[in-house]
């Protein structure tokens, strides 16, 4: 199904949902994980993203690609989760099960067997820098798309991206020096 076809869909059936999940599910999960650094939260956020899309596909009007739209929803829901903490359980009861973790976020990240050392470095970045870097490097979004997803100006995106790259390069070199 082309991106342009989705804008004519008023109500989604489970087959279409299955198609979207197969095509973008892992990408969505990865972004949720990279933003929250928590495996369980990434599970819940991915679920919320697809439920929201299932209920609100009529809001997709093709202004961006389907992938960018999904990434935008994922980012917003992830930020919401991180901001609202427990009170979110009122509307998303599944949150509570994911919140009851006994280990710190950083420890959990290590336990997730991150594939590359570089990801450990990226996960050390503050959220504002991390999200820009991930959207650009991993998801290959343009400046304009990132500005739209993050709700900030292109100038701010550029400045944050430059800072993120600088920091990661510094950590990366520092790490290499010890090896």
């Amino acid at each position: 199904m082309d991106d342009s076809d989705w804008k004519y869909v008023e109500q989604m059936d489970t087959q279409a949902l299955q198609y979207l999940m197969s095509a973008y599910g892992q990408d969505i999960w990865n972004l949720a994980f990279l933003l929250t650094k928590r495996h369980h939260l990434a599970d819940d956020i991915t679920q919320d993203v697809f439920i929201k899309v299932y209920q609100s596909i009529h809001l997709f009007r093709g202004a961006s690609s389907m992938k960018t739209w999904l990434l935008s929803i994922t980012r917003n829901i992830a930020i919401n989760y991180m901001r609202t903490a427990f009170m979110r359980k009122v509307t998303l009861t599944s949150w509570i099960s994911s919140q009851g973790v006994g280990v710190s976020a950083e420890k959990e990240v290590l336990e997730q067997s991150v594939t590359e050392e570089i990801w450990r470095v990226v996960l050390k970045l503050p959220l504002k820098l991390r999200e820009v870097l991930i959207l650009h490097a991993k998801y290959e979004l343009s400046m304009k798309e990132m500005a739209s997803v993050l709700g900030i100006s292109e100038g701010t995106v550029k400045s944050r991206l430059a800072r993120a790259r600088k920091k990661v390069s510094a950590y990366w070199k520092e790490g290499a020096a010890y090896e």
Binding site: M21, G25, Q26, I28, W29, N30, F33, L34, H39, A42, D43, T46, Q112, S113, V114, T115, E116, I118, W119, V122, L133, I134, A137, K138, E140, V168, S169, W172
Partner: peptide
């Protein structure tokens, strides 16, 4: 190191 970020952050399918 930029290219390395194109891959998956975790080493298995999590979804």
């Amino acid at each position: 190191w930029y290219n390395r970020l194109k891959g998956s952050p975790v080493n298995r399918r999590t979804f």
